[in-house]
Structure formats: structure tokens, C-alpha cells
């Protein structure tokens, strides 16, 4: 088990290195001169002398590889540089905004599971009857809804008209309900269809027919034989949902004034604040990759077929 975990981790490190170099190169090869942006954000007039000084300070006169290696050496020590705009350490600022975004994405993921799994099971057990048609229609609608617009609808109905829940801000547990629902809707609908397909696959297998022939009660049949086998594959797909949810959360944040990374990233984009952009994308990718690693390991722990594959 430990060996499986280490092997997965070892395969991820080179990928993260490649990705971080890609980010670095893209920023340097993107539009314009970084030194100009640097001076603009520092509010220094871009004279020739100032530009030369900025280039030397930022190491822009060296090759991209050399710049990257210097950046990497610092990054490995936990230093992602300072924002050119606020002059504060990027990692510190991200650590300030990240929890709100992760809280929103995490809650949305719980909603995805809590809604998608039972509805998917319900649809599969009633195949081609009205619950199946109903959930099919709902899921088509759900994957076609713009999440930010859904957020406005929720505000209109539950905050403005009914007055049940707060429309904006992040205080108290009730304030996360609407943003989490708006973020989760698409993933919940995808999850529903995945669970349905997976359950139908298991229902058709011989071992289930045998279990039924043994006269097992329906509750045991569904609970042990169907659920255990059918739920693992869709639940591992949750790792992919997490990427959608993290991206979706940043858009929905804007609707609800949720104080997460979304606004921080938008400011960095507007300012062309290179260290912040680099830190933002790297931290988000690392969180995403690590969550998927944890899910992979949990999956292998639950299903020996996975962890023994290719291990011998």
C-alpha cells in the first residue's frame, strides 16, 4: 500500500516540475515586457535607467531556464516571491484567500455527492420509468446552466423574495448555502448520470443474479452488492469534478462577494502581476493534483485490484 502511494507520488513530481516550467515560460513569452509591468505597478516612471535596473533586479537578462531554476530554488524553500503590486509575499496572500475558495469548492463537492449519488441510484433502480426520465431531464438542464446566472436566480428567489438566506458575504454557516448550490449544480448532475450508468452496469452482472437467486432481501442486495461495487468508479471521478468545482467557485465567488481567490486572481490578471499569477496557478494545480492523489490512494486501499495492478 505504502509502495503504491510512493509510486504515484514519484510519478507526479516530474509532472508538476514540467507544469511549473510551462507556466514560467508562458508568462515570460507572453505579451509585453515584464520590466515595464513591474515599473508600472511600482509606480516608477519607465526611464531607460529604471528599465535596465528592473531587468537586472528581476534577472530578465538571463535565459529563461536560468530564471526558472532561480525561481524554483526559492519556491522549494516556500518562497514564491512578492506581489509587484502589494509588495507582500505571494504565498502569504494566497494562504489568506485560499481557505474561502477551498471551503466553497469542498462544500460544493459534498453537495455533489449528497445529491448525485441518491438520485443516480434512484434513477437506475427505476430504469425507463418516470424517476429515470425526470432525473435525465434535470441533469440535462443542470449541465446547461451557467453557474453564475444560477447564483443570481438563487439570490432573487431565496434572498430577495423569500428572505431566507443572505445574498452576499461570508459570515455564518447559512451564507455558504447559496454559493455552494450554484457551484455544485453542474457536477451533481454529471455525478447523477455516472452513478446511474455504474449501477446499471453492476445490476446486469452475474453475481447479482446469483445473490438474488439466493433470496437475499432487497435491502442487502442494494446496500452490499450494488452500492459497494457501483459507487467506487463514480466517486473517483470526483477528483476530476474538483477541478471544475475550483474553477466554478471562482466565478460564483464574484456573484456572492465571497472573499476567495477569484477576486485576487482577477486583480492579478488586470495588473499583470507576474509573481501572483505564477503563484496562483501553481497553488491551485498543486491542490488539485494532491486531492486526486489522495483519492487514488483511497481507491486503491478500497479496491485491491487497483493497487496490485502492475506492481509485481
Amino acid at each position: 500500500m505504502l509502495r503504491f502511494a510512493l509510486r504515484r507520488l514519484a510519478s507526479l513530481l516530474p509532472l508538476l516540475l514540467l507544469v511549473s516550467f510551462g507556466f514560467f515560460a508562458m508568462l515570460r513569452l507572453g505579451r509585453g515586457d515584464p520590466a515595464l509591468d513591474y515599473l508600472r505597478l511600482a509606480q516608477i516612471p519607465p526611464t531607460d535607467a529604471a528599465l535596465a535596473l528592473a531587468r537586472a533586479e528581476l534577472g530578465l537578462d538571463r535565459s529563461i531556464l536560468a530564471q526558472y531554476l532561480a525561481w524554483l530554488a526559492e519556491a522549494l524553500r516556500g518562497n514564491l516571491g512578492e506581489s509587484w503590486f502589494t509588495r507582500r509575499p505571494v504565498l502569504e496572500e494566497i494562504a489568506h484567500y485560499l481557505p474561502a475558495t477551498l471551503q466553497l469548492a469542498g462544500t460544493a463537492m459534498l453537495v455533489t455527492i449528497a445529491v448525485g449519488v441518491p438520485l443516480g441510484l434512484w434513477a437506475a433502480l427505476n430504469r425507463d420509468r418516470w424517476p429515470d426520465h425526470l432525473t435525465r431531464a434535470i441533469s440535462f438542464l443542470g449541465v446547461s446552466l451557467p453557474n453564475f446566472w444560477l447564483g443570481f436566480l438563487f439570490v432573487l428567489v431565496f434572498a430577495v423574495t423569500l428572505g431566507w438566506l443572505p445574498a452576499i458575504g461570508r459570515d455564518g454557516p447559512s451564507s455558504i448555502i447559496l454559493p455552494a448550490l450554484a457551484t455544485a449544480t453542474m457536477s451533481a448532475c454529471v455525478m447523477l448520470r455516472l452513478v446511474r450508468a455504474s449501477v446499471l452496469g453492476v445490476l446486469g452482472e452475474p453475481h447479482l443474479r446469483f445473490a438474488r437467486a439466493r433470496g437475499l432481501p432487497r435491502r442487502t442486495l442494494i446496500g452490499r452488492h450494488v452500492m459497494l461495487n457501483a459507487l467506487l468508479p463514480p466517486l473517483t471521478a470526483i477528483g476530476l469534478h474538483l477541478g471544475e468545482l475550483m474553477g466554478g467557485a471562482m466565478v460564483v465567488e464574484s456573484v456572492f462577494g465571497w472573499p476567495g481567490l477569484g477576486r485576487y486572481a482577477l486583480t492579478a490578471i488586470a495588473n499583470r502581476d507576474y509573481p501572483v499569477l505564477q503563484g496562483f496557478v501553481l497553488v491551485m494545480t498543486t491542490v488539485f493534483v494532491l486531492c486526486n492523489l489522495v483519492i487514488d490512494i483511497a481507491y486503491a486501499w478500497l479496491d485491491p485490484r487497483i493497487r496490485l495492478e502492475g506492481a509485481a
Binding site: 508568462l27 474538483l242 477541478g243 471544475e244 475550483m246 490578471i269 496557478v281
Partner: peptide, 13 residues
Amino acid sequence: TVPTLVLALFMIG
């Protein structure tokens, strides 16, 4: 490896 919308935001940056 990168969530699509996060990558898109970074690219726009």
C-alpha cells in the same frame, strides 16, 4: 493536470 478554468484564467493573465 491543471483545472481547465484555472488554466484559462492564467493564460488570460
